[in-house]
Design a protein around this nucleic acid. Sequence first.
DNA 1: AGTTAAATGCAACTTTGTTGCAATACTACC
DNA 2: GGTAGTATTGCAACAAAGTTGCATTTAACT
Lengths: 139, 139
Amino acid sequence: MLELHKQAEEMIRARGERATSARVHVLATLLAEQRAVAHHEIEERVRRKQKLDRVTLYRVLEWLQEKCLVHRVVSADRIWLFRANLDAHPHPHAHFECTRCTTVICLDDMKAEYDRQLPPGYRSHEIELRVKGLCAECT
Amino acid sequence: MLELHKQAEEMIRARGERATSARVHVLATLLAEQRAVAHHEIEERVRRKQKLDRVTLYRVLEWLQEKCLVHRVVSADRIWLFRANLDAHPHPHAHFECTRCTTVICLDDMKAEYDRQLPPGYRSHEIELRVKGLCAECT
DNA sequence: AGTTAAATGCAACTTTGTTGCAATACTACC
DNA sequence: GGTAGTATTGCAACAAAGTTGCATTTAACT
């Protein structure tokens, strides 16, 4: 736990940014998870240890994302889920969503190229791939 | 225009369902578009000709979807976009989203299989693929 | 320790979508 | 063509997710 706080703080300072209490707690919380986590869940967890405003959390998450310390993915019910980036320069990757427990995890780097022809004049520069199914616990 | 209303009404009656004014207008509006359209835009268009409550529109769209007359896809800002199904039994397909004008269109049938190994115990039964880039008009 | 820009908390607001219930409209039947 | 009965609609109120403006506090630098 304390380990993760240290790690979070270092990740932020390594970028030459201000390591505020809110940022460190939020990032540490995300580092503790192997999955993508929703705003309300992060809020709940951080609040056990620290006062934290809803709005501040929105701003912290936005900031962490700008700094590439975190990335986000849309959940099945169309809210953002956040996941700490272990790698400094994260590669695009696919996500897996369990249709029963709604957990979202990151899959390996995705090399899928969209091999079909796009309509004339269209250009692609990014691909989002989401695999839905049942996770190990829900199978 | 009138053509589309007739077409919409026939599509609904072909399923043995009640062709109400709201359903016909909404479906005709979607049939007129070659792209996926947001709730607020449908609302605005239908209202030029017909009184229509927000809630009714939500319910009509849900109903059209259940009857497979329409399918929906999440937009970049996480709202639902709706598109009329030309085919009675629509195949899964990919979507293209223009990052400038945010227009979403449907692409050809997607045969993309996720060829990577999932974690042990995980099973996939559906894949969602979204290509982002610039459309012909924004290039 | 003091200074200062950046970050935070609070209140109010917006957008998207949902629920319950009473009023209305569509269809089938006569 | 009128009517009965159920499905659909409109209204009001609500809920969740996210945003904005502004005054206050805090982190980092000297």
